[in-house]
Amino acid sequence: MTTHTVTITNRNGATFEVNSRRPLLGQLRDQGVDLPYGCEYGGCITCAAKLTKGEIDQRRQVALNNRQIEHGYVILCVARATSDITLEIGVESHDKLYRNPFLDPLQPHELKADIASPKV
């Protein structure tokens, strides 16, 4: 089984070994990382974390729009590591997750994948 190392910068750089088959949320929680979560199927954004290095597969998530993905957000309850990765976790990592839509509208290419237009 392929394993990868997860480094969590806002937990003093603590490292954890995870496999590439199961979502990150459960594997990190099993190792004692206290993480927020809600729906556990990739739809509610509660468990969002920020990926600052490495690669993940989060094809099952349906919560993030393309701007949030561009900012590095990953949905831990469905995302799997496909390389060694570095994360910021919890609400502390949510500085760019939320925006006021009346102050800061999305461009058409920044919508969720199912309705986004190609970037021109």
Binding site: G38, C39, G43, C44, I45, V62, A63, L64, N65, Y98, P101, F102, P105, L106, P108, L111, K112, I115
Partner: peptide, 18 residues
């Protein structure tokens, strides 16, 4: 849909009939 409103409110999705 829960997958639409739970992550937050994207005003733009109103026009896309979500």
């Amino acid at each position: 849909a829960p997958n639409t409103f739970m992550p937050g409110f994207d005003l733009e999705e109103v026009g896309h009939l979500k």
